[in-house]
Design a protein around this nucleic acid. Structure first.
Length: 467
RNA sequence: GGCGUGGUACCCAAGUGGCUUAAGGGGAAAGUCUGCAAAACUUUUAUUCGACAGUUCGAAUCUGUCCCACGCCUCCA
């Protein structure tokens, strides 16, 4: 039985889909006004793991992710500029160009991280009519009111507003650090539609029953989820920061229109903890996948790093910790490579033991995606002397359906593509060793190393690896 | 100021009342092997879980106080 931690109840619940065997899942994707940093990718990898676990449990998953290319304001209090417009202005490009560029980088990075693509990437600008329709629905149901700058959702009209985040509305008022618009009836009210500013032409704006403008940020997810998955879905996920505002508002909008429950399971990924090195997109100081590559770390090093912590706990990022992950996955691949070398069809089987590990592994991943323990099960398995190489390889390959580390691609030790020159040197070194001229032998080894090959003396002879 | 989360070895991190006198990975140390390396393998590496009280037959796990870090309420996954 798959169990998932539901933010709504703050407990782990048995996962029961609306329709047996099928799962409808929507995840909040990126706002494509800038690069995604590695913290953003922690959430996307968590969502990828969730998808893989669902698939592993033989659910057929309809998985949608949005691309926000309009309406996400610099401030969630419905003030300030549209992030996309701001970025376009800054770079002197059109919004379309900006959106395409950053969407492209996002998809490329996702691919490098072995993140499985959703069935559909939906762009907010492709669903403007659906968003307008939803606002019309809310208007009809009496949940909206106009102000001088837009159409707002009256949160006081929606019973149970803030339930997901367990918001303390009175406390919010007391603790408010910024003044909220005088025209808002309640501090938690939010914009459904914003009017274009009078003094300035926006790149993106649309006609609507209320006037020319653009949709509020939250409405896109409600509208696209409804359009592609229907009123009632199984899972909705995103970063933990979305709980108090974005997802809270999505629930209010969606349910106020449909009258149905919107989402059964809300899942949220914790932040990566950068210590003093704050990730701030506004200051432009943040670590991306390319930053990591520039420092010599591969996307899989980072993916393995993330697997060693649980998604609902903060994980401390440091290059020291990442270095540990890099060594870890290197050793892991080495081990698999050695297994492939020692693989033999005639090895004795111990299916019982194999099942035991498979069960242990499944229990861990089905316990709210406990990847750290699942990784530990893999290591235990690899160290178990009672399993054959063949069994270990089969299990590793099976486990990697979840981990997504590309362990299957781990090659056998290859001795091809080595230039003759190297073979000649190895031959010379062999001679030197024979005549016990170890100084010369060591020098030749260094020479070979300087040419990009590392040699190791083993019982079977000389092993050659590229550096 | 309001709300919340967390502090487990050198680093990352699991475990949330007895199965644990605390998984797993990295690092470090010792050993086997080797001319030496490297690799591989073996062993060691927290009597202790931020501090102090308390509840309990029994706590890292529950309660209280304090210290510290972080997050949200402003942009952020």
């Amino acid at each position: 039985m798959l169990r998932l931690f539901n933010t709504l109840s703050r407990t782990k619940e048995d996962f029961i889909p609306i329709e047996p065997g099928k799962v409808k899942m929507y995840c909040c994707g990126p706002t494509v006004y800038n690069y995604q940093h590695i913290g953003n990718f922690r959430t996307f990898i968590f969502e990828d793991l969730l998808l893989r676990v669902l698939t592993y449990n033989e659910y057929k998953v309809k998985y949608i992710m949005n691309i926000t290319d309009v309406g996400h304001l610099v401030s969630d209090s419905d003030e300030g500029e549209d992030k996309m417009e701001k970025s376009a202005k800054l770079l002197g490009k059109s919004i379309m160009e900006i959106a395409e560029y950053y969407t492209g980088v996002f998809k490329k990075d996702s691919e490098l991280l072995n993140i499985i693509s959703p069935e559909v990437f939906c762009k907010a600008t492709d669903y403007i009519q659906e968003q307008i329709d939803l606002i019309v629905c809310l208007e009809k149901n009496g949940f909206t009111y106009p102000t001088s700058d837009g159409v707002y959702f009256d949160t006081s009209k929606f019973p149970g507003y803030g339930k997901l985040a367990r918001l303390d509305i009175e406390g919010l008022k007391e603790g408010a650090r910024i003044e909220f618009s005088a025209e808002k009836k309640n501090i938690t009210d939010f914009a459904l539609w914003k009017f274009s500013p009078e003094n300035e032409k926006r790149q993106l704006e649309w006609e609507s029953p209320w006037g020319k403008g653009f949709p509020g940020w939250h409405i896109e997810c409600s509208a696209m989820s409804k359009a592609l998955l229907g009123n009632h879905i199984d899972i909705h996920c995103g970063g933990i920061d979305h709980i108090p505002i974005h997802h809270t508002n999505e629930i209010a909008q969606s349910e106020a229109c449909s009258g149905e429950k919107f989402v059964n399971y809300w899942l949220h990924c914790e932040f990566l903890d950068f210590g003093n090195e704050k990730m701030s997109k506004s200051t432009g100081k943040f670590i991306t996948l390319s930053t990591l590559s520039g420092n010599g770390y591969s996307p899989m090093d980072y993916r393995y790093f993330l697997l060693t912590a649980h998604y609902r706990k903060k994980q401390k990022f440091s290059y020291e910790a990442l270095e540990g992950a890099r060594s870890g996955i290197k050793n892991l691949k080495n081990k698999i490579s050695n297994l492939k070398n020692s693989f033999s069809e005639s090895e004795s089987e111990n299916p019982g033991l194999s099942d035991e590990y498979k069960t242990r592994f499944t229990d861990k991943i089905n316990d709210d995606l406990n990847m750290p323990e699942a990784v530990a099960v893999m290591w235990d398995m690899l160290k178990d002397e009672n399993l054959s190489s063949k069994q270990k390889l089969i299990l590793v390959s099976d486990f990697d359906r979840i981990f997504g580390l590309g362990l299957d691609k781990t090659e056998e030790k290859m001795v091809t593509l080595v230039p003759d020159e190297i073979y000649d040197l190895i031959e010379k070194r062999k001679e030197a060793k024979k005549s016990r001229d170890f100084k010369a032998a060591d020098e030749i080894r260094e020479l070979i190393k300087s040419k990009g090959f590392e040699i190791k003396d083993t019982k079977e002879g000389v092993e050659i690896n590229t550096i």
